[in-house]
Each structure stands twice: as C-alpha cells, then as structure tokens.
Nucleic acid binder design. Structure first.
Length: 456
RNA sequence: GUGGUUGUAGCUCAGUUGGUUAGAGCGCCUGAUUGUGGUUCAGGAGGUCGUCGGUUCGAGACCGAUCUUCCACCCCA
C-alpha cells in the first residue's frame, strides 16, 4: 500500500473557500495599494545566497531555507572542509541559492539592479510568498504571504504619514476595527542608549526594554545590569518605565531623558511631525500609539519603526510591520537612497478575520445555474442554452453524466447553486426550459429568451 | 535552535488500573421516492488506533525514536 501523502511542516493546502477568503484580503490590500499610487513588481522566489545572507542577523541566517546545488554538490568540497563537519562553513560551498526570506531585501536588490529604469521616488508594492525555516506555531508558518508597500528615493516624512493612513485604510476596508499602529524611532532608542552610557549595547538594551510588559520593570533593570549597563544610566531611565498619557505627554517625557542627545532629539522631532500630521488628518478606525519598547528590525531600520497589533482580545502576534531604512541599498552598492515601507501579514490577518467572523458572507465563486442531464439529446440542447448564458456572463454548468435525478439535485444542493434547469423529453420537444429556484422550490417552464433574462 | 504538548472512521471526539470482534455524533453510500434537492424513516460501507521499534502471555493504552499539531522561549508576518 502506498504511504499516505503529506505536506511539509508549516505549509498548508487551501480549499476553494479558503482561497476565496484569501483573495478577498489580497484584493482589498491591492486596491488600497493602488489607490495610494504604488505599482506592482515581482521578484524570483529564490535569490543568490549572498543577496540574503547576513541581512537579517544571525537568527535570520539560521531561518533562511538554503537550496542545495544541482549535480554533484559534494564533489567540489575539499576533504579538509568535509572532515571538519562545520555546517556553517560547509553551507556556502554546497548551497549558492536560497528561498526568499522577506520582500524588502529582494526589493533593495531590485532597485539597485534596475536603478536606471526607475523613476524616483519609486513606490512599489509586492504580494508574494516568503519562506522561513521557523518552528510553526499559531499564526506562524514556514510559507506565508507578505504584502509590502515601500517608497525609495525620498526622505520626506510625509511618506511615514501616508503609510499610517494606508494601514488605517486597509483595516477599515476589511472592517477590522480597533487595530493599533505602534510607532517608535530608531534614533530614540540609540539616543537613550547613548544617554545611559550603553552606546555600544544598543541591541542588549532594546532586547531588555522590549520585555517590559512581559516581565516587569524590576526584571528588566536586572537584565540591563547583567548586560553591563551602569546603574546610574538605568536610574536615568526611570521616567521611561512610567510613560503614560497622550502621545504628546509621552513625547515630552522622552524629551527630558533625551535632552543631551542630538540623535534622540531628532527622533522626537520626527515622531512629533508624524503625530501632528495624523492628528490633523484623522484616522478612520485605527489608533496610532507611541511604543518606546518597539525594537524590531534594528538590523536595518534607521528612523521610524512600525508594528501593527490585532484588536485587543485576539491572541495574535503582529499583523504588520515596517519602518524607515536610510541605507538599505547601500549594501548592494547604491548609496544615499532612503526607503520606507510597511508590510501586511496576510495569513495572520486571515486568522484574525476568521476569529472575529468578519468575512463577508458571499465571497465564494459559484455557478448561478446547473443544468440537469437527462441523456444525450437533451444534453446537447442544454449546452446550446449554456453557451448563450455564458456569452451573457452567467456562470452555468451541466452535470456531466446522465445520473439519477436525485444525485444531480443533491449535487446542486451541496454546491449551493441557486438555480437548476431541467430539460427532459417534453421540454426538448417544445423548445422550453424548466427553471427551478432551489431556495423556494418554485419552478416554471419558459423559453430561452426569458431564461436568459431571468438569470442575467 | 531549547522546553513542553497533540495524533483513534471523511470530520469532531469517547475508549476505565494494559484483557474477547475499537465506539458515538455528524458526513458518505443504498432504498422508501425509475422527472425533483434540503426533512423523515430503514439499511450499509468505512479504522494495521501517525509511523517504526521495545516491554508483556496480551498494547489504542506503558517505554524509546521519528514525523505531525499546538504552546512557551528566541525571533517574527
């Protein structure tokens, strides 16, 4: 007996219903991207390893799916290296390609490679799957879709403002209320690190700070001490632990801490600019919230950092993220091109909409009418009518076999086809069609012209 | 990558301290109804209990490995 088939860990099949729901989200995001002036691009599902490796930190490198070289991939490895059994050193010898890990780095590569064909500022969107060799959990898969919108070639903070509006627009269209757009700024984080004498410990400092709402103030301080951050520096942080109130009040408190840091002051200015603009413009359903503990993507973000969390009460990690990276294309040799962008996590948004029952009831693709098959002569008559209906844009289909009536009706019922047409011997002879409404059970016998009119 | 968790019929799940032939509901198939579905009634099919190995007279149950699911950490969408 054949072994039961399966799919790899962290991947999924999607049935017709799931695809319909996913398309609903895709289409919503896409429509909003286009309304904001973004243009679509696509990049290959795999890149040269050197394009991806080292761009996401050590953790990221570990999570990149590597593709084994074709042919005799071991033959070219020299014996000494082989004997060493050092997986890391070996990897670069036996694998030269890797699956896309996100859409931002491939986009940076794209910009550098096509810089002469691109009009800057360039606003692109990209909706494609990415792969991560992560251990699966709820809302965490090894293959999932990202929906990215980025702008390169403009340092203007109006872009950040527009991205906040874009988030708000998409989640409003999806009827997902109560979404929080958290914002922070890399300059503020490095400013704080500078002020407390942990200039060279930015990562340690932010990792500890990030745990504030999980492990509490005391533990965070302990961890910082443990990482070699001086006590007098931690004392300066005190106002940070009790940040509260409005965006304005929080920014004011930050200003106290950061008044000696040029970098920090710049970060505050940027935050204020964005907040002022958003306050003036207004948001439909989302909230913009300052969160100094937000420390994602520090490997390349240089200014604003965004993260979107689902409405309260839904246990789900972030459903979107993004930020400003002043020099991402620099690593590919193109200096002084600033970029800023955001991403939507399709798969997680799906889970949230499902949990809150927010999908519109009628999104499945379905035929409008099924023709019952009574036999060869009748079937041909049916197909003539079906041809006309399809020409008029009515999705119609004939049951392929002259099976028992009950079986055919049952099929129509299961498929939730709203109408059924019966053409038996008598209808065939009189050139008529018996149209049955499956919801009410009503039926009547009519001519083709009227049939088309009713179903159109 | 670390620690834990899950797996029994197509689906959701029972299955007692190890003990005959592993159950239920829903779904599926057939008939009552040979041109009328959703309701009802009667009958039926379907499982090497995730996989491999071990302990035992005997394993769905106990042990080990492995795969899978979900969860926490890490990180992230």
């Amino acid at each position: 007996m054949a072994k039961k088939p399966g799919i790899p860990k962290g991947t999924r099949d999607f049935g017709p219903m799931e695809v319909a729901k996913r398309n609903y989200i895709f289409n919503t995001i896409k429509a909003n991207f286009e309304a904001f002036g973004f243009q679509p691009i696509e990049t290959p599902s795999f890149e040269n390893s050197e394009t991806l490796m080292g761009k996401y930190g050590d953790e990221g490198d570990r999570l990149i799916f590597k593709i084994l070289n074709s042919g005799d991939f071991l033959g070219k490895v020299d014996d000494a290296l082989y004997a060493e059994k050092d997986a890391q050193k070996m990897t670069s010898k036996i694998s030269e390609k890797a699956l896309r890990y996100d859409l931002t780095v491939p986009f940076a590569r794209f910009v550098v490679q096509h810089q002469n064909e691109i009009e800057f500022p360039f606003k692109r969107y990209q909706i494609q799957p990415v792969w991560r060799a992560d251990r699966p959990q709820k809302g965490r898969f090894r293959e999932f879709y990202q929906c990215d919108a980025d702008v390169v070639g403009s340092k203007s903070l109006w872009q950040e403002v527009e991205f906040v509006q874009l988030y708000d627009a998409v989640f409003t269209t999806l009827k997902l209320k109560g979404v929080t757009i958290k914002i922070n700024n890399r300059k503020i984080l490095s400013g704080i690190a500078e002020v407390i004498g942990a200039h060279d410990k930015l990562i340690d400092f932010t990792v500890a700070l990030d745990k504030l709402d999980k492990i509490g103030e005391e533990k965070v301080k302990e961890e910082m001490l443990g990482k070699g951050i001086p006590q007098e520096g931690i004392d300066k942080l005190q106002p940070l632990f009790s940040l509260s109130g409005t965006f304005e009040e929080q920014v004011a408190a930050l200003g106290e801490i950061l008044n000696t840091s040029e970098d920090g002051k710049k970060g505050i200015e940027e935050l204020q600019f964005i907040d002022n603009a958003i306050t003036e413009l207004g948001l439909q359903t989302a909230k913009l919230q300052l969160d100094v503990t937000l420390a994602r993507g520090l490997n390349y973000y240089t200014g604003a950092i965004f993260e979107v969390s689902a409405p309260k009460g839904v246990a789900m990690g972030s459903i979107g993220g993004g930020g400003r990276y002043d020099d991402l294309t620099g690593i590919f040799g193109l200096k002084d091109v600033s970029g800023v962008g955001i991403s939507f996590g399709l798969d997680r948004i799906y889970l949230v909409l499902e949990e809150l029952d927010l999908f519109p009831p009628t999104i499945t693709e379905n035929i409008k009418v099924l023709f019952i098959n009574f036999g060869e002569a009748e079937a041909l008559g049916c197909l003539k009518a079906i041809k006309e209906l399809r020409k008029q844009g009515v999705a119609a289909e004939m049951y392929p076999d002259a099976a028992k009536m009950k079986k055919q009706m049952n099929f129509a019922n299961k498929r939730e086809v709203p109408f059924v047409v019966m053409v038996g011997e008598s209808e065939l002879n009189s050139n008529t069609f018996t149209l049955k409404n499956m919801a009410t059970g009503e039926q009547q016998t009519i001519f083709l012209e009227e049939l088309v009119g009713r179903l159109k």
